[in-house]
Design a binder for these strands. Structure first.
Lengths: 220, 220
DNA sequence: TAGATTGTTAATCGATTAACAATC
DNA sequence: TAGATTGTTAATCGATTAACAATC
């Protein structure tokens, strides 16, 4: 289970090929580490090493993976490249997915220029701000647009995820607009508690939560 | 449990009063929501509402809390203010904790000026950059210092957590310096896979991991 | 061969959920 | 009182762990 706050409609009837929540979450984590290991030129990695970086028990990792096939080589470990391909196939996230980013402040710029999303097939294809003074500014390959264009851009670009890097007081309004435009996944970097229909998934990013948790074990 | 990657030394002999990892993680999550609810002027909150925002089952929440006392009022819910106080007491994180931030780029500035940490008693008391051109710049109430001053500042200010908002290639070096200076909690916003001694806790922030996970359930 | 690491089993522990009496 | 929500139980399910044969 997750420190991070994600759910979906658990009331839905799950298609038989849908993974349990826990496994999907862990596979995503393995993928993150594998992607970075590949960048560092690693060819193989053992379940023990993966355990060190993902903080998941190594037996659990081997068990998760062996449920889908025999991907490893005894005495050697897993081939990084081919495991990345396999996990992407399992998670069915091999494609490109378009993101719209709201807020062209420091956080928005940091997100737009990070590799974190790009490495996993997420592409920021539009940046919005409600401040007309910022509209027209260039951030990397993109030009800042006004919030008013949200609806048109979501349709044109096939936006799947909306990322809110705006002050808390602006977040709910944008969430409403995104929902109205048909976006079903919202990534909330503001402190606001968002209210959305059940079919929409909100993930609120809380660095301090993880820090509190780490601190508890440091203090005790 | 936990999408987020945090562990501590599980080999240690746990003092009898140490909470199971899962409960500590969830309590941190409740606290985040309660803090925000308090900001919004809410006086009470039900386990069902907390469940909506934290994505933890409402029965689980009531059970977690009832392990420490009867904090709620039947038919009404929990008093927000007093529950914040209780959970802080349980987590023993009522105090102020000093953070050192590395990297004065967009991400560093965003972190320094966010309320996210401050709300939970974490205070950024120093910002470092290795670029001499940035040293001396003011960010809010702080002045950017050069990385060289790390050791002295950690001792003077009693730094408990080091936050890395630097490019991946610079992260391991800073982690080594932090460890050498005695810091035991590192929050890594870079993509680098950090290697540290077992006594040190590293949390690597992976927004894309959570997004992949959300997307999986959207696509299936 | 010797060493390392996978794949898998079995046993334990914690999380999840539904249900409901107690009570505000 | 009627409605809502807590506190708690019991039953189920998934995660964790140790152990080890298989095999690279």
């Amino acid at each position: 289970m997750g420190l991070s706050g994600l759910t979906t409609d658990r009331d839905d009837i799950l298609p038989p090929d849908r993974l349990p929540l826990g496994i999907a979450a862990r596979l995503s984590r393995y993928l993150q580490t594998l992607t970075q290991a590949r960048k560092m030129g690693r060819e193989t990695i053992s379940s023990k090493e993966l355990a060190t970086y993902t903080h998941v028990n190594s037996t659990q990792i081997r068990r998760d993976l062996s449920g889908f096939g025999k991907f490893g080589k005894r005495g050697v470990g897993y081939n990084v490249e081919s495991l990345v391909v396999q996990i992407r196939k399992i998670l069915r996230t091999s494609g490109q997915h378009n993101i719209a980013l709201f807020g062209a402040g420091h956080l928005g710029r940091a997100i737009a220029s990070s590799d974190g999303f790009a490495d996993h097939g997420f592409r920021v294809v539009a940046i919005f701000d409600r401040d007309s003074a910022k509209v027209g500014e260039r951030i990397g390959p993109l030009t800042v647009r006004h919030n008013d264009e949200l609806r048109a851009v979501v349709e044109e670009q096939g936006i799947v995820v909306g990322v809110l890097a705006v002050p808390g007081h602006a977040a709910q309004g944008l969430a409403d607009d995104l929902v109205a435009a048909g976006v079903r996944i919202i990534f909330n970097y503001s402190e606001a508690l968002l209210t959305v229909p059940p079919a929409v998934t909100v993930h609120t990013s809380n660095p301090a939560v993880d820090l509190l948790y780490a601190l508890y074990f440091y203090l005790t």
